[in-house]
Design a protein around this nucleic acid. Sequence first.
DNA 1: GCTGGTTAGTTGGTCTGACCATCTGATGTT
DNA 2: AACATCAGATGGTCAGACCAACTAACCAGC
Lengths: 259, 259
Amino acid sequence: MEVLPAAGRWQEINEVDGMTTEAWEPVQRVRTYEQVMAQIEDRILDGRLKAGDKLPSERDLSALLGVSRPSLRESLRVLEALGIVDIRPGGGAEGGAVLVGEPGSGFVNLLKLQLALGQFDQTEVLETRIALETWCCEEAAQRATEQDHRELGLILDRMDDPDIGTAEFNRLDAAFHVRIAESTGNSLSAHLMGSLRTAINRQMIEAYARLENWKETATVVRREHRDILDALHRREPAEARRAVGDHIRSFYNIGNVEA
Amino acid sequence: MEVLPAAGRWQEINEVDGMTTEAWEPVQRVRTYEQVMAQIEDRILDGRLKAGDKLPSERDLSALLGVSRPSLRESLRVLEALGIVDIRPGGGAEGGAVLVGEPGSGFVNLLKLQLALGQFDQTEVLETRIALETWCCEEAAQRATEQDHRELGLILDRMDDPDIGTAEFNRLDAAFHVRIAESTGNSLSAHLMGSLRTAINRQMIEAYARLENWKETATVVRREHRDILDALHRREPAEARRAVGDHIRSFYNIGNVEA
DNA sequence: GCTGGTTAGTTGGTCTGACCATCTGATGTT
DNA sequence: AACATCAGATGGTCAGACCAACTAACCAGC
């Protein structure tokens, strides 16, 4: 933990170049908030700032950088939305902007909007999930520990509840897939996967809701999940890959009956 | 193209609840910029806003929403950083915030910082690339057109230049991999892949620069690229998958000799 | 009538200064 | 010692102002 001012000087952004207006040609407009972002990025990239460090207060930092508080705040807002800093109000040790070391909801925020805007479509999300999850299962079949197996089993057990609702079923479904990814030890894959899943969560729930006989679908899903877990238990990467691929494709076909 | 005010009323954010201060208990703090984001998100999600639409001017929109311009601007900054809107200064038809329909550099911005912060490490990026690229190659072996094959060949031809520098070689290398992904028709996978690659671009270049005999490495890389393209030509998914997996792993081993 | 320069208005970009709610931590009281 | 209180710091928000860049309409001159 380190408070910034002690970690070297911040460079003031508003530097005069004192030259004539000529020779100012292709240099595209750079907004001050971008320059602020750039300075913070640099300090992160070269290690002067690391996870857990706390930034100076908005007033201090804006003064250090020679920019106004609103501009500085625009930068902080972006960093917050990206999940880079965590901002808490209040004074003392608790308040302030802290660099976070754990991935947050940055991807989900991004993906949801990009999906809604039609930058990507649902089929692409599905295929990308298949790409990631087949690899994850393949690796999980080799890397997963007994503990991973147990926890995955517990999730499936909870999904066996005959009185379960679609919302909870869907939640556990997602948890199962993410848990597999996590058992590979690759948090990026796991996080990406989870984000993709979350981004289309709304559609998933609606798809479940559209099913008249969703209980039958649930039965199929339960069976396929068990198959996947069995393959992990038996440590058969190829079989695990096949099982999860079929599983995702099968659910996609069901859910898209009337899409 | 549609300018917003005509597309239904915006709901003012500052609504009084007129109640006593009691019964205000677990409702966690919601900042106005988040409420603005939420309203714009809603309009995107339900289709009232779509790619190509232009938002009202900052002054108008802030008035419509009943928030101050700085708060509104914080929201716009975030949407811009996420690649959701494109903001251009100046009046008339050119200026203003426009919703974009093409994925931009949102992922890269995010990944670079998350990587720098240690939220993920390089090995995870590598493995995720393998997950995505093996799938992409497998599919590309089935989906790629003759045109795709031609363009990929052209990229490899340019990499054959014996006088090529590391920077250009690396750039073409990335282009080759991304072009394969694009030939699957899955722009999400392609974009994710490209973003992962871009996020570690700096490290890639440094890795190349560290190699004393990088020419030899380049020879190996060229050969492996040709193998991959051959597999695509012959439309052998399994072979394409294997070739690209080996290729990535092989380069990783070389580049990490002294990492 | 057409061209070209001028001007008014709009837009985003930025800043200043102010006020509020909340939380911390020291102060002071019981 | 325990509690209540208050000053200060912090983030959250706002109003108003100015600037630079650009558009579009206007107008003078040919």
